[in-house]
Design a protein around this nucleic acid. Structure first.
Lengths: 203, 203, 203, 203
DNA sequence: CAGTAAGCGAGACGGTACGTCCTGTCTTCTC
DNA sequence: GAGAAGACAGGACGTACCGTCTCGCTTACTG
C-alpha cells in the first residue's frame, strides 16, 4: 500500500521541478558536468538549494535526471528484418546518447556508478534493462522469422550494438553519420546470424 | 632543429616522476578518482606539491598519466584466422581497461576530454590510433588469407570490437568472462566476413 | 534611513565570532603572528575556514581584531596633577600594548597599515583618536588647574607620551618597569608645563 | 686573528652585493616587505638566489641591510644648547626612519625581532646603542654647560626623543613637519632639565 | 478559523580539496 | 670555489564546492 494520501503541509511546487531541471540542463550543455554547481543551478532556477536537495539526493542524481529527462523510447517497430530492426534500435540509442546533456553527464555518471552501487543498480534496472528487453524482442522476432536458428543472448547483442555507439559518441572525435550506423547494424546482424548457426554453448 | 642541449639549472629528478606516478596509481586503486588528493599523493611520494604541478598541469593529467603508465601493447600475433586475431586483440584491450586504475580514471578522463580538446587529441593519436593500426594489420592479413574479400575499414572494426569491451567494463556490473570475449570476437569476425562480401559502398 | 531590517537568509552565528576570536587570540599568544594559520584557527574554533573569511577579509584583519578585542579603556580619572594624570594614562597605554597578543600583532599591523590605507584609517579613528581625546581632557584639566598656561596640543602630548611606550615595548628587550613609567610621565609633564609658558606659535 | 688569507676558489663578486641591495631596496619601496620575494630580488638583480643567501642569511637580514644601507650618522655637533642638540638629533633619527625603504622594513623587522633574539641583540648593539651613545654625549655636554644638574639617563632620553619620532612615522598618517620636530625637542629639553633638578633616584 | 506541517528563498555552516606562492636548500653546468 | 638557473620539500594562503542547517515567510490541509 503505497498510497499515503495528501501529506500535510504545503505541497511541492511542480514549477520548481521544471525550473531546476531546465537550469541544470542548460548549465550542463554550457559548462560540463564538473563545472555545474548546485549554487549556480539554484540561482539560475531562481530557487533555494534546499528545494533542489528535497527533490534530488545529490548533484549526480540531479544531473542524471536532467540529462535523461523526456527520454522515453518507443517500442521497436518490426522492420521486417533483423538488420532493419537493429538499425532502428541503433538510431534510438544514438539519439539518446547524442544530446549535449547526455554527452556531459554520461562520463560523470559512470564515475559515480563505480562508487555508488545503488545508483549503478538503478541504472542497470532502467536503461540497460529496457534496451536489453527491446533487443530480446528483436531477436525473438528474428528467430520466428527464421533468420536466427536460435534466439540467442540479448545481453550479447546489446553489448555488440550499444558498445560501438557508446564509444563513438563519447570517445571518438567526430559525429556518427548514417552510413556508419548502417554498417554497424549490418555487421552485427550478419554476425549474429552466423553465430546462431554455430555450435550451441551452455551459457 | 629541436635539440636544445642541457637546459640550465638543476634538472628534474626522474625518481620523482616515478615516485609520483607510483603513489598516484596506488591511491587510485585504493580510493577511487575523487578521493585521490594531490596532498596525499605528494605525501606518499615524499614530494612537494609543486614538484607534481611542475610535471602535470592538473589532477586530471596526473591521474591519466598514472593510469596509462606502461601500457604498451605488443604487436598482434597472427593466430591463423580473423576470429583468432580478433580474440587476441580483445584480450589485449580488455586487460588494458580492466586494471583498477584504468577503471577509476576512464570516466573522469572522458569527462575531461569533452572539455579539453587537446587532451582528447592526445588520446586519439596514441591509444585509439595504435589500436586501429593493429586492427588494420589484422584485417589486411585476413584479406590476404582470403577470409575477407576486401580489407575493409579498420575504424569500423575497432569500433565494433572495442566498443563492447569498453562498455562492458564501465557500465556493466560484473567482469567479462572468457566466453563472452569468445562470443564477441566470433560474432564480429563472422559479421565482418559477411559484410565484406556485400556490395561495396562509395564512402 | 540606514535601517535595513533583518536580511534574508540564515543569520550569522555570533557564537562563531567569539569562538574564532578566542581561538585566534590563544594561538597568537602561543605561537606568534606568522605561526598562526587560518586552518589551525578554524580547527581550534571548530569552524570552517569559510566562516572566518566571511567575517574577516584576511589573516591580518582577523588577528588584528583578535588582538584588540575588548580593549576599552576607562576615561582618565583626575589624579589632581598633570603629572599624575599622565602617569595614569601611561599605565593604561602600557597595559594595552603589553599583552602577548598585542605584542605579536602590532608589528604585522604596522606593516599592513603601510599598504592598506583603509586599515590605517580605521586604526586612526579608533585607537589613536581615543587616546588623543583622553589626553585632551587631561590637558584641559591641567589648564583649568593652572598648571598649563595654555591647553596645548593634545596630538603633541600623545606623541610624547605614547611614543616612548610604543617603542619600549616593541624595540627594547626587557619590560618597562614602574620607575621608567614614572620618569616618562614626570619628564613630559614638566616639559609640557615649561613649553606652555613659552612663546605661542602660529602653527 | 681574523685574517685567513685569500681563500681558495673564485672570490665573491662585489658588484653582486651592490646589485642585490639595489634590487631589494627598489622592490621594498615598490611593494612592501611581505611582497618582496627572494626570487623577484634575485631576478631583478640578475643574480641567482644562492648568491643572495651566501651573503645574507635570510630575507629579514637582506631587507634590513637594504634598508639601512648607507645610514651612517655623523657625530652630533654641539649646537650650544641641550635643546639645539636634541633638535639636531631628532633630525638625524627622522631622516633615517623616513626613507621609503625604512618605513617598509621597520615593522617587519620588529616582527622578526620578537622571534629572533639574535637579530634583536644585533640591532640593539648597533642602532640603539649608537643613538644612545650620542644622547649620552649630548647630555654630558648639557651637564658641563650647566643646563642639567645631573647628566641623567641617556636611555630615558633616547626613549623620549626617539619614541615620538618612531610613532609619528610608522603609525600616524601625515608627515612630520619641522615645527613638530621643534616642539618635540623643546618639550623634552625642558622636561629633562626640570627632571634633573628633582630628587635623585637610586636607579 | 486557528493550528500545524511542510515548502520556499536566502544564505551561513563544516569540511575538504584545489592550485598558487614563497622560503631556504640542493643540484646541475659553466666560468 | 663562485655564479646563474632552477628543481626541491614543506607548508600557508585564499577560493570553491558539496550537502546540511537555520532563518523568516508562505501555502495548504486539519481539527
Amino acid at each position: 500500500m503505497l498510497k499515503s494520501g495528501p501529506r500535510p503541509g504545503r505541497p511541492r511546487d511542480s514549477h520548481i521541478d521544471q525550473a531546476v531541471l531546465k537550469a541544470a540542463r542548460e548549465l550542463l550543455a554550457e559548462s560540463g558536468y564538473t563545472r555545474v554547481t548546485m549554487d549556480a543551478t539554484a540561482a539560475r532556477a531562481g530557487v533555494g538549494k534546499a528545494a533542489i536537495y528535497r527533490r534530488f539526493g545529490s548533484k549526480a542524481e540531479l544531473l542524471f535526471a536532467a540529462a535523461v529527462h523526456g527520454m522515453d523510447i518507443e517500442p521497436p517497430a518490426d522492420s521486417g528484418s533483423l538488420r532493419g530492426d537493429l538499425r532502428a534500435m541503433a538510431q534510438v540509442i544514438h539519439e539518446r546518447l547524442a544530446t549535449p546533456a547526455a554527452r556531459e553527464v554520461t562520463p560523470a555518471l559512470l564515475a559515480e556508478m563505480s562508487r555508488d552501487p545503488a545508483l549503478a543498480a538503478r541504472l542497470q534496472s532502467t536503461f540497460v534493462a529496457r534496451e536489453r528487453r527491446d533487443l530480446e524482442v528483436i531477436m525473438e522476432r528474428a528467430h520466428q522469422r527464421g533468420e536466427l536458428s536460435r534466439p540467442g543472448d540479448p545481453a550479447l547483442a546489446h553489448l555488440l550494438l550499444g558498445g560501438p555507439l557508446f564509444v563513438a559518441l563519447l570517445v571518438l572525435p567526430g559525429p556518427l553519420d548514417e552510413d556508419r550506423l548502417d554498417d554497424i547494424a549490418s555487421v552485427i546482424a550478419a554476425g549474429l546470424i552466423a553465430h546462431a548457426s554455430g555450435p550451441a554453448r551452455s551459457g
